[in-house]
Design a protein around this nucleic acid. Structure first.
Lengths: 204, 204
DNA sequence: GATCGGTTTGACCGTTCGGTCAAGTTTTGA
DNA sequence: TCAAAACTTGACCGAACGGTCAAACCGATC
C-alpha cells in the first residue's frame, strides 16, 4: 500500500461504516482492521486508539455539517427564506449522511463521554436560529428561539433516527427520495405555519 | 435476603440506574451485582443473561408508558383537548422517568438489537395520534398524521435527550420544574398552532 | 546495491467480560 | 424435626477486548 494516505483513508472509511452500523462498543479494532483489509496494528499506527479513531470519524461529519450550515445561515433574504434554507441544509445533510444522525443521537443519549464537541455544534445551530429569528420572537418564555430550535432540530433529526423503527407504519421506505421529499414538505409547512402564528407577524 | 422478590427488585433497580446512566455496554454484570449488593451469580439466577436483564428494565418502562398513554388517549373531549392530554402524559412520563427518554433513543439509534418492542410502542402511539387526528388531516402526503406524530414525539422526547447537551445555552436547568413547565407551554402552543392551521379547521 | 525512514505485520500481553458450577445457606412445609 | 426447595455465594472458564512491540517489508535516495 503505502501510496498516499490510502491505508489511512480505508481505515477511516471502514470505521465510519462500522461505527455507524453498530455503535461504538460493538465494534472492535479487529473488526475495523478486517473491514479495511489491514492488520490490526496498522490501525494503531494511524490512530492513537479507539477513542481517537471514533473522534476522527465524528470530526469529519461535524466539519461537513458545519460547512453546510454556515452556508445556509449566511444566506440573504427574509426570515422565511433563511429558515427554509437552514431546514433544507439540515435535511440534505442528514439524508446524505444517514449515519450522522444516528451517531449524534447516540453520542447525546449515550451518557458517558464528553459532550463538548456536540455542545459546540448545537451551540452553532442555536445561535444561527436565534439570529435568524431575531426579534420576531420573545427573548424568554415558551416562544423563545431556544424552544423553536429544539422543536425544529428534533423534527428534522428524529425523522432519520426513527426511520428504522417506523418501518411497518410507513408505506414504503421513509428514507427513499420520495419519503424524504415528503418530509421536507412537511417541515416547510411547519416553518411557514409557525412563522405565521408568531405574535410579531400576526398583523401581516 | 430471600424475603419476597427483594433481591430481584434490588437487582432490577441497580440495573435500571446503571443502564440509564452509562448505557448497555459500559455496564458489566459485576457492576450490577455490586450496585445491588449481591453476588454476580445471583444476577444470573434471576435473569437469563445481560440481554434479558436489559429487556426487563426496558419492559417496566414500556408498561408504565403504555398505561400513561392509554389513559390520555381514552379521554373524552374535542381534538385539541385530547392532543393536549397526550402531550401532557408524554411530558409527565418523560419528566418522571428522565432515564426513559435516553434509553429509548439509545435503543433506536443503537443500531444493533431487535427494535420490535420499540416498534410496538411507537405503533401504539402512532395509531393513537392517527385516531385522535381522525379526518382533520389528509391520509397521505406531508400533512398526514404520521408526520405530525414524528414531529410531536420528537419535540417532546428531544427536549429531554438534548437537555444535557444544552447546558450553557439554557438559563437554568432545562430539567427543572420551571424549565419543564415552560417546555410544556411551548408544546401546547405548538399543538394549538398546528391544529389551527390544518385545512379542515381553517374555516373556524 | 547499501541504506534509511515510513509502513505493515503477526505474535503476544494483561485485563475484563458474560456466563457456569458445585457447594453452602436459608426458608418452607409436612 | 428434618428433608426438600429456594436462594446465595466464591471460584472458575474460555473468549474477546484494547493495546504493544520487534521484526520484516518496501520505495526512495545516494
Amino acid at each position: 500500500m503505502a501510496r498516499n494516505g490510502e491505508a489511512r483513508a480505508k481505515i477511516l472509511a471502514a470505521a465510519d461504516a462500522l461505527f455507524a452500523a453498530r455503535g461504538y462498543d460493538a465494534v472492535s479494532m479487529r473488526d475495523v482492521a478486517a473491514e479495511a483489509g489491514v492488520a490490526k496494528a496498522a490501525v494503531f499506527y494511524y490512530f492513537e486508539g479507539k477513542d481517537a479513531l471514533y473522534a476522527a470519524v465524528l470530526e469529519g461529519y461535524y466539519r461537513a455539517h458545519e460547512a453546510a450550515l454556515t452556508d445556509a445561515l449566511a444566506r440573504e433574504g427574509d426570515l422565511r427564506d433563511r429558515l427554509h434554507a437552514v431546514v433544507d441544509a439540515y435535511v440534505d445533510f442528514a439524508a446524505d449522511n444517514v449515519r450522522y444522525a444516528r451517531m449524534v443521537q447516540r453520542k447525546i443519549a449515550g451518557g458517558g463521554g464528553d459532550l463538548t464537541v456536540v455542545r459546540q455544534n448545537l451551540g452553532l445551530l442555536l445561535r444561527g436560529v436565534e439570529a435568524a429569528l431575531g426579534d420576531a420572537v420573545p427573548a424568554h418564555g415558551p416562544l423563545a428561539a431556544r424552544h423553536f430550535f429544539v422543536t425544529l432540530s428534533g423534527a428534522v433529526l428524529n425523522y432519520f433516527t426513527y426511520a428504522p423503527a417506523l418501518e411497518g407504519a410507513w408505506d414504503g421506505d421513509p428514507l427513499s427520495p420520495e419519503g424524504i421529499a415528503e418530509r421536507r414538505a412537511h417541515l416547510h409547512w411547519l416553518v411557514d405555519t409557525l412563522l405565521a402564528a408568531l405574535p410579531s407577524s400576526a398583523p401581516a
